[in-house]
Write a protein that binds this DNA or RNA. Structure first.
Lengths: 251, 251
DNA sequence: ATTATCTAACTAACTGGTTAATTAACAATG
DNA sequence: CATTGTTAATTAACCAGTTAGTTAGATAAT
């Protein structure tokens, strides 16, 4: 008897709690996105945004689907309604980020500037993209590390779709400049990685810089300073010395 | 009666199993590390070695203590016998790796070479250290990412103990070379990161390179080629053009 | 009524860390 | 020189907490 009573007690309490929760939710969200048919596009986009941040900061292994759902203000099951699994989710974010990067870069590479100016524009554009999309280099780093461990199902696609096309165009550009006599005789297969390194490293090592220099390396002023330094560094390494074709930026 | 018999049975079987295990272990390890008081130093070292590999490949969140124990051929509880927790384990590995790096670098910085040769020697030494200790840049990358997410308890110590001393010495070296008129007027706060970037990036992006160029970028020949390219790149960016003091390496 | 959209609650598997027991070496003791 | 006790090294088995992914519905628009 007392047993069945306590069971009833539990059920009653549970229902009370459910009602209370419903009220809370209603008052908190003010009726927004209750039940179904809220704004699906918005939800999907919110998920991708949250995933990008979570993955770039914590990595795949460290990323928590609950945290993602909370950040996107969406139930966790919705992640699996829109995407197959964690891995697919990650892939979607990568394609989104790298796609935008490719677009920004090709805008410059497709322009009709002289070689020396175009390479400077390319470096500048890449720098600017990273400066205003800081999660891009983070995702790239993460993915490269996963690829080394042999755990990346995305790397092949990413290289074919994004890196290879860009690399080929920049490589051509370098060869052209060398033929024209404005660039030193560098090997694109090494020079391109060196350029990217110089551009990217400052951002990925910002936490170290902050502690080494005792100031925030990511303020707009510092970033502008770095931009100039990067262009100077690369220009000095690429342009023929004692030549008149040096539009390099100095401070 | 049958009960006591079965109990005896169990005891006998247990002893048999124990003997068998002992034999197995003996034959496998040839008497090494049996039972207790084997070689604690060896066990500790084996753990650290395994941790270094596991952490550099999987990161802290992805690293599995079970996998580490298996790789070190040691029981998991032994990890916690020697180290407080996962985090402490990671810290020990970081200090070991960064300590050796600092040693190798200071050996060059303490030498009495002229500025231009010393900076080349520094870059070469750093490159060589990374080339033969590939887990170092991986650990560094991991830790920088954790630091950005605010999850690193080690970064402060690492910067103070390893990066700061090295940075200051290289910075002095650059200033000296500039005063002497052999180096261009570069800002060490930007030039040093750019150098490190050029040195490190090739290794951390090897998985992309492999797919981009369709060959292994980490063979001794390719690494030697890269070394030359890095020295050329940095030399060209640092040494005054049209000056006689360019010992830069070309292919 | 159907369908697209959304949720709370659940589960099976896994993971960092703990515990109590076991083993070997060694020193002291009888 | 055997026995005993002590201590450091090592382990199997376990546990409490977490996590990716699932399920059984609920809600609203059509």
């Amino acid at each position: 008897m007392s047993r069945s009573e306590s069971r009833d007690d539990v059920r009653r309490r549970r229902e009370e709690i459910r009602d209370l929760r419903r009220q809370m939710r209603q008052s908190r969200h003010e009726l927004r996105r209750m039940g179904s048919r809220g704004q699906p596009e918005e939800s999907r986009a919110a998920i991708l945004r949250a995933v990008a941040i979570e993955f770039s900061e914590q990595g795949i292994a460290g990323a928590r689907t609950d945290a993602i759902a909370r950040a996107a203000k969406v139930n966790k099951a919705l992640l699996y309604y829109y995407f197959q699994d964690k891995e697919t989710l990650y892939g979607a974010v990568l394609d989104e980020a790298f796609g935008r990067m490719k677009l920004a870069i090709f805008q410059v590479l497709d322009s009709s500037l002289p070689s020396s100016e175009k390479i400077v524009a390319y470096v500048g554009a890449y720098f600017d993209f990273i400066a205003s999309n800081p999660i891009y280099p983070r995702l790239m780093q993460r993915e490269m590390m996963r690829a080394r461990a042999g755990d990346s199902v995305h790397i092949e696609r990413l290289v074919k779709s994004y890196f290879e096309p860009i690399y080929h165009r920049v490589s051509e550009l370098l060869h052209k400049g060398i033929r024209e006599g404005v660039f030193r005789k560098v090997d694109p297969a090494h020079f391109v990685p060196s350029m990217i390194a110089t551009i990217v490293f400052y951002f990925s090592s910002a936490p170290v810089m902050r502690r080494l220099f005792h100031f925030d390396p990511l303020t707009p002023e510092r970033i502008a300073e770095r931009r100039a330094a990067v262009l100077d560094f690369i220009s000095a390494a690429l342009f023929k010395p004692c030549s008149s074709a040096n539009p390099g930026v100095r401070q």
